[in-house]
Amino acid sequence: MKVGKLPARKVRILGLRYLGATVVTLLFLFPVYWLFMISFKTPDEIYHVPPLWVPAQIQFSNYYVLFKDGDVVAILNSLIVAGVSSGIAIVLGTLCAYSLARFGTGGENLAMWIISQRMIPPIAVVFPIFLLYVHFGMVDGFFGLILLYTAFNLPYVIWMMRGYIVDVPLELEESALVDGLNRWEVIWKVVFPMVRSGLMATSVFTFVFAWNDFLFALVLTRTEVITFPVQLTHYFGGQSNFWGKIAAMSVLGTLPIFVAVSVMQRYLVRGISLGAVKG
């Protein structure tokens, strides 16, 4: 953009908008900055009055403690639970979505029921689920959490992938059917490649939802498969002496999300609006 060729008034307006944009961005990123910065501070710097806005040097003792005490296992647990459940939800959900999109299986009612599953507040189901899990000995195990997150993410996957699949021109599939593929092959060789980006984006979001969940994890984990948000709350207390751990654990639990979402930037809007807005 050749700013020099714009009239002075336009340059001024552009300048003001840059200023506004920068101020707003700094405002919103400040807490994130604060979190990251604390994680690099020494205890002396953390508990300094007045607060220090920049640590004297970047050092990793807060992270080191997490590794030494084995607390990072929570991150690993989160990875396993979120990763496996997303994978299953994506496969089953996409297949289901294909049927809904192409054959209208179950009509509008089934689709509405599925999305209404998404609307049910977790708090309303977490208690009976807890009781059932206690009954079947599934509390504090990988299987129970993965099953739960799979179910929790399925409506989202089905809803989103239905939208992506509907966008695939029907003629591509028909052409393949005429050319010699059967339905299974059409799904694998035509539909999958066509919705690959949508599939990736949806996977990222299901992963993030499972990764970020607190309530289910709080109720259904004890010691064995504690996920990172639950581990984080263990550092809360009347005393503030766990600040370094809180910050370090938060950063560890946030970085993967930042990376994943940055990669999926193009699909962000469609992803978070449940497909209502196609960015």
Binding site: P169, E171, E174, S175, V178, V190, P193, M194, R196
Partner: peptide
């Protein structure tokens, strides 16, 4: 049979 479609139905990938 072979069929040619209105929107060409070419696989973009």
């Amino acid at each position: 049979i072979a069929m040619v479609f209105q929107n060409y139905a070419l696989y973009p990938y």
